[in-house]
Simulated assay, not measured.
Amino acid sequence: MDIQLNGQTTSVAPGITIGDLIRGKDLDPETVVVEHNLTIITTDQLDQITLKQNDALEILRFVGGG
């Protein structure tokens, strides 16, 4: 199944949640902001939303530095 991830077409397994996808990319769900189909998703919703064909995700990661 294909979704749009940060503007790129990406294939993911059917039935995967946003939380599964984030952890599968070795990202900490506590350090990212996720937009799903133009809606900001809270951390507690990540494992409740199952991705569907053509969903659009933007994942932004916070990086410290100076």
Rank of each mutant, 00 (worst) to 15 (best):
D20I: 01
K25I: 05
S11K: 14
K52F: 01
R23Q: 14
N37A: 13
I22A: 04
L57M: 11
Q8G: 06
A56H: 07
M1D: 05
T42A: 07
G15C: 11
G7L: 07
I41M: 13
L5C: 05
T9R: 11
G64I: 03
K52D: 05
Q53W: 08
G64D: 08
D55E: 05
L38Q: 12
L46D: 00
G19P: 04
M1E: 04
Q48H: 09
K52L: 05
V33N: 08
E58R: 09
M1P: 09
D55N: 10
D2Y: 13
N54M: 06
T9K: 14
G66Y: 05
R23Y: 03
Q8V: 06
D26R: 15
T31D: 10
V32N: 04
D44P: 00
N37D: 15
H36W: 14
L5F: 09
D26Y: 09
V34T: 11
L60I: 15
G24N: 12
D26C: 12
G19F: 02
I49Q: 06
K52E: 07
V32E: 05
F62T: 01
G24A: 04
E30W: 08
T9H: 14
T43M: 12
T31A: 12
G24K: 04
E30I: 02
I22R: 03
T31M: 08
D2P: 09
F62P: 02
G19K: 12
K25Y: 02
L27N: 05
L51D: 07
N6Q: 10
L51I: 02
L27S: 03
L38V: 01
G65W: 00
E30S: 11
T43D: 13
V32K: 04
T39Q: 10
T10F: 11
G65C: 01
V12L: 08
K52T: 02
I3E: 10
L57V: 06
D55G: 03
I49F: 03
A56L: 02
D55A: 03
I40R: 01
E35L: 02
T42S: 15
Q8N: 14
S11I: 00
V63K: 12
L21H: 03
L38W: 13
Q8E: 15
Q45H: 13
D55K: 05
H36L: 14
A13L: 07
V63F: 12
T50C: 09
I41R: 08
L5W: 07
Q53Y: 08
Q8A: 12
G24I: 10
D55I: 00
E35M: 09
G7K: 07
T10I: 02
T43Y: 06
A13K: 03
G15K: 10
V32Y: 09
G7R: 09
H36E: 04
D28S: 14
E35Q: 10
D44M: 09
D55S: 07
A56Y: 06
T9E: 14
I49N: 08
V63Q: 10
L38P: 10
L5K: 12
A56W: 03
T9G: 02
V33P: 08
A56R: 12
I59H: 06
I49W: 02
V33L: 15
K25C: 01
V32S: 04
S11F: 03
F62Q: 12
L38H: 14
G19L: 15
L46P: 00
V33A: 15
T9N: 11
A13N: 05
Q48P: 04
T10Q: 06
R23H: 10
L60E: 05
I18V: 15
D26T: 11
I40H: 12
